Amino acid sequence: MTTTSTSTSTTTALPFETEWELGRLPLLWARALDTADATVLEGLLTDDVVVDMTPATSKIGLEFPVLEGRDTVIPTMIGAVGPLDTMHAVSNVTARGLGDGYLVEAYALAQHHLPGEGPDVTATRHAMMGNTWSFLVRATPSGPRVARFTMDCRWMEGDPTVLLAAIS
């Protein structure tokens, strides 16, 4: 195992099996959102998880609070994204060890349509985002669990208010 120092933390190269297991986390996160599956999110998150999407939402003119605790995160995320017709495509997943856990980063292409309008070729109101996702992950006896999720927006196309349709 190789250890390298950076200005902010120590990172550790991971065994292939660990990197593969961690690399599944963004895929499962996306699947949970696209299928409104709260049980998937429940299995991914620590009890004290923090979800911060403000780096993304502030760039596109929306206000979305920082969410704290699994009991708040799951119903809020499923309630906000679950009813929409969405598809998240995840790529460029990387994982590295940190002193007390792991950092998993990924790109996410997120397509959002109003409920029931996704397959309608005449419906043009949508929100498409190119995001970066960062997961701070803790090792637990049950496996790796997301302790913090942060989303940033690299670009946006369409109407950002589509993202509020399920909660307004």
Score class of each variant (00 low, 15 high):
24 R>G: 14
37 D>T: 13
156 M>Y: 02
95 A>Y: 10
51 V>A: 12
39 T>M: 15
72 T>S: 13
49 V>E: 06
11 T>R: 14
94 T>C: 14
1 M>I: 10
41 L>V: 04
159 D>A: 05
105 E>V: 10
135 F>I: 03
116 G>E: 09
117 E>D: 12
101 G>E: 12
156 M>F: 13
78 I>G: 02
146 V>L: 07
69 G>E: 04
9 S>E: 15
97 G>M: 05
93 V>S: 08
38 A>W: 11
126 H>W: 00
33 L>W: 09
158 G>P: 01
39 T>H: 15
21 E>V: 11
157 E>Y: 07
55 P>W: 10
129 M>E: 05
37 D>Q: 10
65 P>Q: 09
114 L>Q: 10
53 M>G: 11
147 A>E: 09
124 T>N: 05
23 G>Q: 04
108 A>G: 07
104 V>R: 02
80 A>V: 04
49 V>T: 09
26 P>N: 04
145 R>G: 06
79 G>H: 03
146 V>M: 11
17 E>F: 15
94 T>Y: 12
18 T>V: 15
95 A>H: 09
55 P>Y: 10
24 R>C: 12
25 L>P: 03
136 L>F: 05
150 T>R: 14
5 S>C: 01
158 G>D: 04
19 E>K: 12
107 Y>P: 00
157 E>C: 06
120 D>Y: 00
113 H>M: 14
148 R>D: 04
27 L>F: 11
88 H>G: 04
52 D>M: 13
130 G>A: 15
54 T>M: 10
72 T>C: 08
3 T>F: 11
70 R>K: 15
157 E>P: 00
36 A>F: 01
57 T>S: 05
112 H>G: 01
109 L>Y: 12
158 G>F: 04
131 N>G: 01
92 N>Q: 14
39 T>I: 15
5 S>T: 13
